Amino acid sequence: MTTAPTTEWHLRDGKARVFLAPGRRGIQRPVILVGDAGTDLDTLTTSLEDGSYALLAELHASGRDLVLVGLTADGALGGQGETVQEVIMRTIGERVGSVPLAVGGTGRGALVTRYALARSENQAVDLQTSVHFSHNGTAPAGEAEVDLLDRMGNWPVRPLKLGLIGGGATSEIDVEEFDESTSDDSDPGSALLSKELGTWLLERLPS
């Protein structure tokens, strides 16, 4: 049985669930994680609660709250990116304190967050994000997505860019594109991240 979210946001291209640490009333030290497109939010939540490495519990133990985003399977990069921008702006609006955000995703979710942050910088919109993380991130699919990213600068400039490759996956993105990167070939089972990758990520999130 998955943990019940504190609240749920209905979005144009999906849904978001907010998981506050026990006893909290507002989002503190926010981490936004966007799942691979088409991944059911219950399935995604379960992968964050796995006994081998429960990322959700580790985030809460470190004083961070999670905004988990599920995107529809058939959305275009531009529309999905705007949806993620909406989530980021809403998170900022409901945030308690001034700790910058960490924004990232897994699979195509990593690509969408990359585009959303780059688009915001192109528009001179401050999304108050100091870390962007990409877990098994995908490359743009086709010339249209390559061109769309290129028009936005390809990558966000301001955040620290972290690359994580796990479960024996092969990176679709050159590791030199990241400021820091790491990999773990061990099988995480049904957990989203192995303990090694999760610990590495938490050590680099905004404090």
Results as ranks from 00 to 15, higher is better:
137 G>K: 02
162 L>R: 07
20 L>E: 10
103 V>W: 02
166 G>M: 13
43 T>F: 14
81 G>K: 01
162 L>P: 02
77 L>Q: 06
75 G>K: 04
50 D>F: 12
42 D>C: 09
188 P>V: 12
64 R>L: 00
83 T>A: 13
63 G>S: 02
58 E>T: 03
97 G>P: 07
46 T>D: 11
184 D>K: 06
106 T>E: 09
134 S>V: 07
197 L>Y: 07
145 E>Y: 05
165 I>K: 10
11 L>Q: 12
143 E>D: 15
83 T>Y: 04
110 A>R: 11
179 D>L: 12
161 K>I: 09
67 V>C: 01
132 H>Q: 13
32 I>D: 07
48 L>A: 08
21 A>P: 02
186 S>L: 13
117 L>S: 03
66 L>I: 12
120 S>M: 07
26 G>F: 07
188 P>E: 14
2 T>V: 15
3 T>Q: 12
159 P>C: 03
65 D>P: 08
191 A>C: 03
176 E>A: 15
43 T>H: 13
170 T>Q: 14
206 P>R: 00
205 L>C: 01
77 L>P: 08
32 I>M: 10
99 V>M: 02
189 G>F: 14
16 A>G: 10
23 G>M: 05
201 L>R: 09
148 L>H: 00
136 N>A: 11
21 A>T: 04
89 M>Q: 15
207 S>G: 12
98 S>K: 14
101 L>C: 06
29 R>L: 00
118 A>M: 04
60 H>A: 05
108 R>K: 10
125 V>P: 01
180 E>N: 08
74 D>H: 08
29 R>K: 10
141 A>E: 13
194 S>L: 11
142 G>Y: 06
189 G>L: 12
78 G>I: 15
49 E>Q: 15
74 D>L: 12
133 F>G: 09
62 S>M: 08
